[in-house]
Design a protein around this nucleic acid. Sequence first.
DNA 1: GGGCATATTTGGTCTATACCAATTCTGCGC
DNA 2: GCGCAGAATTGGTATAGACCAAATATGCCC
Lengths: 239, 239
Amino acid sequence: MQQPDILQYLGVRDGIAERIGGGELKAGERLPSERQLQVGGGVARGTVREALFQLEAEGLIYRKDRSGWYVSPPPVVYDPTRWEGFMSYVEAQGRRPATETLSKTEIACDGMLAQIFSRPVGAPMYWIRRRRSIDDRAVLIESIVVDASLAPGLIDHDLDGSLTSVLKSIYGIGVARNKVDMRPCALIRGEAEALRVKSGLPGLSVERTCYDAQGRVVEFDREYWRHDALKVSVDIRVR
Amino acid sequence: MQQPDILQYLGVRDGIAERIGGGELKAGERLPSERQLQVGGGVARGTVREALFQLEAEGLIYRKDRSGWYVSPPPVVYDPTRWEGFMSYVEAQGRRPATETLSKTEIACDGMLAQIFSRPVGAPMYWIRRRRSIDDRAVLIESIVVDASLAPGLIDHDLDGSLTSVLKSIYGIGVARNKVDMRPCALIRGEAEALRVKSGLPGLSVERTCYDAQGRVVEFDREYWRHDALKVSVDIRVR
DNA sequence: GGGCATATTTGGTCTATACCAATTCTGCGC
DNA sequence: GCGCAGAATTGGTATAGACCAAATATGCCC
């Protein structure tokens, strides 16, 4: 029946990719259900799913659990070296950003944080967890730790907006240097749950350590992005 | 039989992850075959594979096609802002780097390249494709374009070593600024084939545009890394 | 129109089986 | 020890069926 020179699921993939590339299916639109996609070619559901997994890995489509597969919107451009907030740069790209604060508590500095902040173990820190969305799709979970002695009462403020501007305008905290670590990761457990994605979805973990002009660590931030939501762009002088 | 409060494949995942974390299986070692992993828990092969896919996504294991599943080595740290070659920083991390030149040809500048290099369409360029490995595992494919007028005869040199040092020592080309774009991607088609990985494996695409002190583009470089091989670390002054 | 219980649809998980091609192992001849 | 043919093993692909829980659609009551 089918050509043996091309894998069947790659053939199905190409068919769907064409319908997306050709404009028949537009960003945000739902694909036909897996069972509907079978009937066209007399192919097993498992094979259709294999094709969908490919397209998901490529970032062309994404899923809403038990609701369906949807065409992905374009990624946003993110420059972690800029001291500019999510709300600001997402909006500048014509998208609609949103932030939810999942939790904010005061914690005691543990060994790892003590080392990062050069503060004694037990020193008070604020720990903030937020979920950020673009056009109503959750795209990242972030976990922020701020030295409480530098920003007393921080968590009493509304943190659903820009943490950047709160730190700057209320506490006069500016950032002079940034250490940024990035690595491909899988979204699992807590992160997957909070983003409502299947465990194992590829992601990008971005870890930022922010220093002020005096070289003190003012903020330690770890973000888990879904892989299809961003493009990182950095412009730097070579050392 | 099994707890319904935990997905079965996640249970299998945990079991294997423990054997890796506990040191029973060490980096580079082969896992038991899929069919052997079934017998332990009376579980279908599809379920075992689902567990292996999870671990692969997390970067804990990787596969060699039709040979087996292996425990992943740790990632290398990569700083794209440094004008330091792959051979050098990989070795500095106690690993064994290798480079193969897949192809090197002179091409004519097309529209896209013309824009990047600010050169006329048709201007001569060198196009180099290389595969780079760490400890005998292919980790990235790169595609480099260099302005031929700045480095005449470049492709007559041996490019299996450091392109960096060839450009610097022979042509006196230094880099002052770097524009780096990174995005999570899927390794498919040519890239997947060259890296001998299954189509759809998560990866990281790193695109570098290198400028000299006069602001001329001297090199345009696109790298496709397998997701489990690297960690990007950048240190920068905030703008 | 809104609220609500119900039926349907949808993707998520799991089983069992089959065949293939690439790789790896085995054993023989030398 | 080496080379080589054949056998066995391994992961990759594909099928068909089943059941579940979450999400969505339906239709009724008010």
